[in-house]
Design a binder for these strands. Structure first.
Lengths: 371, 371
DNA sequence: AGGGTCGCCGTAAACGTTCACGGGAGCCAC
DNA sequence: GTGGCTCCCGTGAACGTTTACGGCGACCCT
């Protein structure tokens, strides 16, 4: 069982010192081209792989990662942060320090968080770009000091971000379409609400929803999308108008977080029972509606997994310099009445209780919250 | 930014040596009860956390983990092994050596793999208990040398295994029930096939399927389960008989891997078009049927994630002594025509091409296969 | 009193990598 | 010939933990 080759093995084979080998392998100055190539040669032939434990111990590098996210009303962002923590803990070596900066949706607090992160010499940032437009200019701050930024949940295209971790919009929209089609017997009129068509993710979801419905269930009719601009009252009003204008509406896909006002509108319009609704995300109020049978299904965007992957992407880049994929997308989970209990047990409220119970038994609570 | 407390800090505070501190913290002999408690006291007050990089470097421990799985016909087990590899690579430090032992479903090769693993001084085993009964006796081998065993995909109750990683059977069965109910307009007759009621997982899935259907869609009728005992011909024959006996059958839930013979039976009986079927797993042939619209949906059991978690559970136990949960269950994914392409891109066949493309761009292929 | 054992503890060398420092060779200029 | 410079390279000390070894009492036995 031969152990891995070390720097010393390479140095020994060439009759040089480990310092030179190290410089050669890392393209540091102070090595002649001839020796460098000989080192690379021998390194490859010995199958050298650096001992990461020794590296971490030696350079004692503490990555400082700033996490800039919303202090949202639902637990979505709590779960994202939880996933980031989880990713950091799963690391084996603890050489990363997380700075959480949270701010409300509106206002300039987002920019302040960015500036504060830069001032604190963060090595990397995980951020939610609430306004992709403005985000571009925040990003210039980070670009100055070559600080990599990974977007989570929403992309900021052409902003120079390192990568983005989000739900696969096409998979979400298409799944919703296929489901609604089968729930409704492949006929009838359906609609969809979204935040704004100007936001890429929402536009893509709707596009996927419509095109899938047209190709798989061509007899169905898709109405024009409804934009609520993240305002509850707008969602409510527009949906009441929708239900009034289309009394024969059979299905509704709510891509936004604000599903409660839509459900309320359906209730007030008296169409709650005869409407098949598919919503997005999962939180207590929505769970109640799901259990009551008022909505058929909800698409869970796995915030915890998003957070965990965002962290891992950023960490791998910082630690190894590995360029990640431009985008990392993941499948959403489908939650219906049938499997609702499974998700509630893993939800922050339920999971906390469960983690406490696990701790009683001396078990690790870590895996209680995997999805 | 004060760094973490070290052994030396503790030793210094007490005027003793690091060796003693180390012995005290690890309950090693050679320390008086008095000093031990003082060490623990100071350690806690300083918030000491061991530097894992230093630990790994020092003890240079190479965990040897044996992975005993099926050489199955579908890609399920390839994906499980892939996930285990992924878990090992994501570790940050490379101190684990994986020994893969694969064997066919029947025969005594499974026992041989166990013996071989013990002979090779494996520190831990990830195994699939193909025959939970016999498994108990294999486990005695492992128990002798206190080798922890984590079951993957199927549990072996009362066998002394450390933990099990599998799909949540209740979530699977209940989801299938809820879906079929809504696909069929909440009425009609449905059936389910499974491998054998004597296998816990299958019994639980069916039980969840039936009880969810009864509670959510009480007007529907569930027939007695069909056991195929993992034999394709038996599945085919019994399903032909089923279709003949119940021409009004509306839905079918196939919990087993062997869905192809069932589909063939439906085709030969001429009921393929009017039957709503939900299957399990995902492989090329099944993808074709899904794309053709012959089955409504399939429940993907996320073998890669199962493998990754099984590895992590075992590793955390070996490295930190953390007792894991008795069972780790995960949600299955729902695959329909709408989101099929997403999964195919991540499947071994598609993923290989994608990984190659990512490598071209200098990107890490690692995240191409996440789910 | 000498020798042996046992319990407690200090010492120091490893593990493999990183990095600051310095030294020698060569070269040019004054 | 002295000084200064650059280019290449060796040296050695860190990083924090583990572990084999040895030492120093205290105690018991003959």
């Amino acid at each position: 069982m031969r152990r891995n080759a070390t720097l010393f093995d390479i140095a020994d084979a060439l009759g040089i010192s480990t310092g030179t080998v190290h410089r050669a392998l890392h393209n540091h100055p102070g090595v002649s081209a001839a020796t460098r190539s000989r080192v690379l040669q021998v390194s490859k032939s010995l199958g050298y792989r650096p001992n990461l434990a020794a590296r971490f111990l030696s350079q004692r590098k503490q990555f400082r990662i700033s996490v800039n996210t919303l202090s949202g009303t639902t637990s979505f962002w709590d779960e994202v942060r939880d996933g980031i923590n989880q990713g950091a803990r799963a690391l084996g070596v603890e050489n990363v320090e997380l700075d959480f900066r949270t701010y409300p949706l509106f206002g300039e607090a987002e920019e302040e968080a960015f500036q504060s992160a830069m001032k604190a010499d963060s090595n990397g940032i995980v951020a939610f770009p609430s306004q992709p437009k403005n985000f571009r200019s925040w990003m210039k701050l980070a670009a100055k000091s070559k600080t990599p930024v990974v977007c989570v949940s929403t992309d900021a295209p052409d902003s120079g971000r390192l990568s983005v971790v989000s739900i696969d919009t096409v998979a979400s929209g298409s799944l919703a379409a296929d489901l609604l089609g089968r729930f409704l017997g492949r006929k009838g009129k359906v609609a969809a609400t979204l935040s704004a068509l100007s936001i890429n993710e929402h536009a893509e979801k709707f596009q996927a929803f419509r095109s899938t419905l047209q190709s798989l269930h061509p007899e169905m009719q898709v109405l024009e999308p409804i934009e609520d601009h993240d305002a509850e009252s707008e969602a409510y009003d527009k949906c009441r108008a929708l239900f009034a204008a289309h009394p024969d509406l059979a299905g509704l896909y709510i891509t936004t977080e604000a599903s409660i006002p839509v459900i309320q509108a359906a209730r007030d319009s008296g169409v709650l029972g005869k409407l098949s609704m598919i919503t997005t995300d999962l939180f207590p109020k929505l769970a109640d509606e799901l259990r009551a049978g008022n909505i058929a299904a909800t698409i869970y965007q796995r915030p915890r997994t998003q957070g965990r992957l965002a962290f891992q992407v950023l960490y791998n880049y910082l630690a190894d310099g590995r360029a990640p994929q431009q985008q990392v997308t993941l499948v959403p989970h489908l939650v219906m009445r049938g499997n609702l209990d499974y998700f509630l047990a893993r939800h922050p409220m339920g999971a906390r209780a469960k983690a406490a119970a696990a701790a009683e038994n001396g078990e690790a609570a870590e895996f209680a919250t995997f999805d």
